[in-house]
Design a protein around this nucleic acid. Structure first.
Length: 223
DNA sequence: CCCTGATTCGC
DNA sequence: GCGAATCAGG
């Protein structure tokens, strides 16, 4: 498979909406997650919360022991270019919450733009008290997905996503009627006000949250 | 172990 | 440019 513009666009959108490289690779098909990650980097897409900490460059000692079992080239590196080039500095001021929890509907295992401390847009998580306007943790929620009234018609496709519209997915990727909410976003969030209410919920007493929380991409894929 | 993304480097 | 191999943290 080659990286056509469309596939690249899809990659960008999915990367941006928080899907994992594995998921993106699955969706695109014909590529491995390594390919996706490699491509994402070559495209200059923003780094995402990596489990791996960028090894801090120590003194000019030895950056690489260079056992290099697969490296045939000795690479003399005649050019003295000690520019460490600090990558994107961590923009996370760490809001620091009350300490007694981090509300989260608990994502299944995979799937779904998970709420992280800091997202692609640079937004940082807020504490329940800091943000009151749109998100209401109140129980009067019974609605499931938005209405797919205009289902396949004027649906918001992956390629229609932007920073301005709600990225809340409806259905499963790959299915014919899969699309995104598409409403105007709640400023500062990737979703519209309504879906922010789904995505960001305050921790409720267990007794009060019987119904399983709605999950992005319709929850675990049924295969 | 599993998962994740980052990086390297032969092609 | 591509992506498997490898690395490394959770």
């Amino acid at each position: 498979m080659s990286w056509t513009e469309e596939r690249i666009d899809t990659l960008k959108k999915m990367w941006d909406s928080g899907l994992t490289a594995t998921q993106i690779a699955e969706e695109l098909g014909g590529v491995s997650r390594n390919a996706v990650i490699g491509k994402a980097h070559r495209l200059g897409l923003p780094s995402r919360p990596s489990p791996v900490k960028p090894n801090e460059p120590k003194a000019a000692a030895e950056p690489k022991p260079a056992p290099a079992p697969r490296a045939a080239a000795p690479a003399p590196a005649p050019t003295p270019a000690p520019a460490p080039a600090p990558r994107a500095a961590a923009p996370a001021p760490a809001p620091e919450s009350a300490g007694d929890d981090s509300a989260e509907p608990a994502a299944p295992k995979r799937e779904g733009p998970v709420l992280r401390s800091v997202g692609p847009g640079g937004f940082v998580r807020q504490n329940p008290g800091e943000q009151a306007p749109p998100i209401s943790p109140a129980p009067p929620r019974r609605l499931v997905p938005a209405k797919p009234s205009d289902a396949i018609a004027g649906k918001t496709s992956l390629l229609d996503l932007s920073d301005k519209i709600c990225k809340w997915p409806l259905g499963h990727p790959g299915e014919p009627d899969f699309h995104f909410c598409g409403d105007k976003v709640n400023p500062g969030f990737p979703y519209c006000v309504e879906h922010c209410g789904h995505a960001y919920q305050a921790q409720l007493p267990r007794r009060d949250r019987r119904p399983p929380p709605p999950l992005p991409f319709g929850g675990p894929r049924v295969r």
